[in-house]
């Protein structure tokens, strides 16, 4: 089983980026050791510049060890996690989450006899 990556795409005003990162440090990251299989790999922003009257996108890349680790991550989300997202949703314009696998692996297909 290979690692699974989760990408959070958070569209927000440039001046909200620091607030979200602070919330991440205060509410989400302290709980990671107890979640065992989840780690934060990257914090990116695009475009990497503040433009006039334009939002930025904050990308948070997470990694879990494997599929069993994915369910461990799911089962260990606590109040701090929910508080983090509730506050982020107040600050951002829109948000999406993506669960991603290895693109070099063939995609599982529907069964022929299904």
């Amino acid at each position: 089983m290979s690692t699974i990556h989760i990408l959070d795409e958070i569209v927000l005003a440039p001046d909200a980026i620091a607030q979200v990162l602070q919330l991440l440090e205060e509410h989400y990251l302290p709980g990671l050791p107890a979640r065992q299989t989840l780690s934060l790999q990257q914090r990116w922003v695009s475009p990497p510049v503040q433009l006039e009257n334009q939002n930025n996108t904050l990308w948070l890349l997470w990694e879990v060890t494997d599929a069993y680790g994915y369910y461990t991550m799911r089962g260990t989300a606590d109040e701090g996690v929910m508080r983090f997202w509730a506050e982020v949703d107040q600050l951002c314009r829109e948000r999406r989450r993506h669960v991603m696998g290895d693109a070099t692996q063939p995609l599982p297909q529907p069964l022929e006899d299904a």
């Binding site: 089983m1 699974i4 599929a67 069993y68 994915y70 369910y71 799911r74 989450r97 669960v99 991603m100 696998g101 599982p108």
Partner: peptide, 12 residues
């Protein structure tokens, strides 16, 4: 449990 259709699709 291990199928991507489960953890990568329905589970959301």
């Amino acid at each position: 449990l291990l199928h991507p259709y489960h953890w990568g699709w329905v589970d959301r």
